[in-house]
């Protein structure tokens, strides 16, 4: 390799003008709009998109797992306690610890983040799906069977539709929880809205903290609202019955 120890300095480098931050930014005032405007495309928007990806993957995978588990526990009720206990334990493990415990297994990767996030959805979704199915009145079930529907048909055409409000309620909680917890994933992958929050912490830079924190809350509330709307569309009978 090269024999030079210090990189030889051919000529003094040109130091360009990097631009000054506004007074608001330099004084680290509570909130500076100009920073948000100039960093939306480069920092905040990509972080928001990553955050949505992290959340969607976790909730969809978590829902698929919980759905299968809940159906099984609905059919064989002996399964409920063990699933409930395991899901409860996973739910109780603090997020920062769970993320770290996965590092030896799946590395400093998005996979580790997703596994932890998925594990937080299971208790909520599993209990709500199961609860929703169990709350279907027995006479409704009997009527469906009386009409000649098979067990499978009863499930898909009668029981699941009637459980939908409870299932969506679980989804709402799961989504909001995951949006919030996904910020903690920054300790293992520098992705999502946790990244600007952590960067803001490292500089004690208020604007970035507020902007990224507010985006996280807004995303959670937006997703929550969207699910409420989805439920209204999916269960029009619930509305008519109420009025």
């Amino acid at each position: 390799m090269s024999g030079v120890l210090l990189a030889p300095l051919a000529a003094a480098p040109v130091i360009p003008d990097f631009g000054r931050g506004s007074t608001c930014i330099r004084d680290n005032k509570l909130f500076c709009w100009d920073w948000v405007q100039s960093n939306w495309g480069g920092t905040l928007r990509p972080a928001l998109i990553q955050h949505i990806e992290l959340t969607l993957i976790a909730v969809v995978v978590g829902f698929a797992i919980s759905f299968v588990l809940a159906l099984a526990a609905y059919r064989w009720s002996r399964l409920e306690p063990p699933v409930g206990i395991v899901a409860g334990i996973l739910y109780t493990i603090p997020s920062l610890a769970l993320f770290q415990l996965l590092v030896p297994v799946t590395g400093l990767s998005r996979t580790s983040a997703e596994i932890a996030l998925v594990s937080y959805t299971i208790l909520i979704l599993f209990s709500n799906i199961l609860e929703g199915l169990r709350n279907v009145p027995a006479d409704v079930r009997d009527a469906a069977e009386g009409m000649g529907l098979t067990r499978w048909q009863t499930l898909w055409r009668v029981e699941l539709p009637m459980a939908l409000p409870t299932i969506v309620a679980g989804l709402r909680i799961a989504v909001v929880t995951v949006v919030s917890l996904a910020t903690v994933a920054v300790f293992i992958v520098n992705e999502g809205l946790g990244a600007p929050i952590y960067a803001g912490l490292q500089n004690a830079f208020k604007t970035e903290l507020i902007a990224a924190g507010a985006l996280t809350v807004a995303l959670a509330l937006f997703a929550d609202g969207a699910l409420v709307l989805l439920q209204r569309v999916l269960t029009p009978w619930a509305r008519t019955a109420r009025s």
């Binding site: 055409r157 009637m162 409000p165 999916l234 269960t235 029009p236």
Partner: peptide
Amino acid sequence: MLRRQSRKRDINVKQGTLR
């Protein structure tokens, strides 16, 4: 939340929305 709706028509509506 859980009203007694065992009439066939209701069930069909739900099936549609579930789809």
